[in-house]
Structure formats: C-alpha cells, structure tokens
Amino acid sequence: MTTTHKRFCQAVVERCGENFQRCLHCLSCASGCPVVAAMTYRPNGVIRLVQYGFSQEVLESPDIWLCVGCNTCTIACPMAIDIPVLMDALREIALENRAKINETGILNFHKEVLDSIQRYGRTHKLEIMMRYKVRQRDLFSDMDLGLKMMAKRKLDLLPSRIADTKSVSKLFKEFKG
C-alpha cells in the first residue's frame, strides 16, 4: 500500500470522524441495505475501497450517491459504524476534488433543493421539480404525476418564504463551497 493510499483513508477517517477501520466485513450492512441492488460495490465494499485507498473508484462510484442515509445499515452493524456519515463525507470529498460524478441526477436534485432553501428559507417543491426537470433536460417523465399532485393541491404554486431570509443566505455564503 502506497502512502497516497494511506493518506486517502486517513483523510476520510478525519473528515467523517468515524473509525470505519473497525469494519469486520460481515456484510450485515449490505444485506439490509434497501438500495443495494442499484449499487456497484455495496456499503462494505465502499469501506473496503477506502481502506485500500482506491480513491478514484470510491469517489466516482454511484454507491455514495444512492445511499439515502436511512440508517438500516448502522443499526445492523455489530461495530456500530455510522455508514451514512461516511457516505456524507465521501460525497463532499468527491465534490471538492471535482471527481467525475456518475449520478448527476441525484446531485442536481440536491442542488435544486439547496437553491430553494437559499432563496426562500424553505423548500418550494413545485419549483424544485420544474428546475430539476429543466436541468436534466427531461421535461416529460412524471408529467402525469405532477399534474395529479397539482390537482390534489399537494404542490403549492407559490413558495412559503421565511421573514429573515438574510440570516439563511448568510449561512449559504459562508458554507456553500
């Protein structure tokens, strides 16, 4: 193992504050994970890649974006490793290092949600969906569903806005990389 490899692993440990070196590779996480079928390496595989320092494979993997942080793995883990926190850290490192993101749809969705919070202090779902669709250049999928939800008044036309948008936009200025 080269020093670069070791350095990557150490950087991830420091970033997430979680000592995943405890991992026994017992596969409890993978067998409970609800999205495992869509993953390439599975949660324990992601941990293994980090341990071995395969930074590119990990940072470009769809797995880190597919994890929704439901914590099913964490409660199954006999070593109580907070895997979602590790995934959070890996996504941040991937973005900072401009790694190639193979799940652009999920990333674009997150960006639209954060933009909405930045604008209004709350999420405006209709606008998030419309802007997401434009960003993805996919205007027609889920069109029926959107109309149905509008008819049921599940999507408000106008955003609900907080009064003190200043303090929220200040947070975005400070912390949005």
Binding site: G69, D88, L95, H110, V113, L114, L171, K176, G177
Partner: peptide
Amino acid sequence: SSAHSINSEL
C-alpha cells in the same frame, strides 16, 4: 436530506 448529503456544515 440534501444539505447533509452534500454539505454537512450547512
């Protein structure tokens, strides 16, 4: 989910 997914400080 979006903030902690890509920006835990935020």
